[in-house]
Computed example of a mutant assay.
Amino acid sequence: MKPKINFVLAAVIFSMSASGLVTAATDSPVSMAPKAAIATTQVGAQLTAGEVRKVDAEQGKLTIKHEALLHLDMPGMTMVFKVLDDKLLKDLKQGDEIMFRAEKLDTGFTVVKLEPAK
């Protein structure tokens, strides 16, 4: 008899979670936000060191030789990033040492925060 009760209990819990009744209490506005909005809420997170290799203001892109991006499970390398705001490219030039935060958005890997290295 006990296996039947466990099965019924599991079925009830599964149907409640599938309907959203179980998760409704834990949902936050951030979990329902678009990815770009999520990225802007995370800009206070850890920054990564990098060196500017190329600035393409016309395309809104930045080539950075960077250390490992742990939050993205990415090793250190040189790659091209989009920028969330073109203002981040202002006054940047090849060879500048920077600290930055990148996120994976629907449009690709994007720099969401950038500041000069100290």
Score class of each variant (00 low, 15 high):
Phe81Ala: 01
Ser19Gly: 15
Phe109Leu: 15
Leu105Phe: 07
Lys87Pro: 00
Val43Lys: 14
Asp91Gly: 03
Lys54Asp: 11
Asp91Ser: 12
Ala25Arg: 12
Thr107Gln: 13
Glu97Cys: 04
Phe81Trp: 00
Asp27Lys: 15
Asp56His: 02
Val52Cys: 07
Phe100Val: 02
Glu97His: 12
Thr110Val: 06
Gly44Val: 03
His71Asn: 03
Val52Gly: 07
Lys35Ile: 13
Thr26Leu: 14
Gly76Pro: 00
Gly76Cys: 02
His71Ala: 11
Lys35Thr: 11
Lys82Leu: 12
Leu62Phe: 02
Lys61Cys: 05
Gln46Tyr: 10
Thr63Asp: 11
Val83Tyr: 04
Ile38Phe: 04
Glu51Trp: 02
Thr107Tyr: 00
Val83Lys: 01
Thr26Gln: 13
Val43Gln: 14
Ser17Thr: 15
Gly108Ser: 02
Pro75Met: 10
Asp85Ser: 04
Ala33Glu: 10
Val83Glu: 04
Gly50Ala: 07
Glu97Met: 11
Pro34Cys: 06
Ala57Trp: 01
Glu97Asn: 12
Asp56Glu: 08
Lys104Val: 07
Met99Val: 06
Leu72Phe: 09
Gly95Asn: 01
Glu103Ser: 11
Ile98Asn: 06
Lys90Ser: 09
Val83Ile: 06
Lys113Ser: 14
Lys90Gln: 14
Lys93Gly: 04
Leu88Ser: 10
Ala18Gln: 09
Thr78Val: 10
Ile98Trp: 00
Leu69Ala: 10
Ala37Phe: 06
Lys104Arg: 12
Thr110Phe: 05
Ser28Phe: 09
Lys87Glu: 12
Ile38Arg: 13
Ala36Met: 10
Glu51Thr: 15
Ser31His: 10
His71Leu: 03
Asp56Tyr: 07
Ser17His: 11
Gln42Ser: 13
Glu51Arg: 14
Glu103His: 08
Thr40His: 11
Ala18Tyr: 09
Val80Gln: 07
Thr23Gln: 15
Arg53Asn: 10
Gly76Glu: 08
Gln59Met: 09
Thr41Tyr: 10
Thr107Cys: 05
Phe81Gly: 02
Leu92Asn: 01
Thr48Gln: 02
Thr107Gly: 08
Met32Arg: 15
His66Thr: 03
Met79Thr: 00
Met16Tyr: 08
Gly76Phe: 07
Ser31Thr: 12
Val55Gly: 09
Ala102Lys: 00
Thr48Cys: 07
Thr41Phe: 08
Val55Phe: 00
Thr41Cys: 06
Thr110Trp: 04
Leu47Ile: 05
Ala39Asn: 03
Glu67His: 09
Val111Ile: 14
Glu67Ile: 01
Ala36Cys: 04
Ala24Ile: 12
Ala25Gly: 15
Leu84Glu: 07
Gly108Ile: 03
Leu84Gly: 06
Gly50Ser: 03
Gly44Ser: 10
Leu105Glu: 02
Gln46Asp: 15
Ile38Val: 13
Ser28Glu: 10
Thr23Lys: 15
Leu62Pro: 02
Glu67Gly: 09
Leu62Met: 03
Ser28Asn: 13
Ile98Thr: 05
Arg53Phe: 05
Met79Tyr: 00
Ser19Trp: 11
Ala18Asp: 09
Leu69Gln: 08
Asp85Phe: 04
Thr26His: 11
Val111Cys: 05
Met32Glu: 15
Thr110Gly: 05
Ala68His: 08
Glu51Phe: 03
Gln94Asp: 14
Leu72Cys: 04
Leu21Val: 06
Lys54Ser: 11
Leu21Ser: 10
Lys90Thr: 13
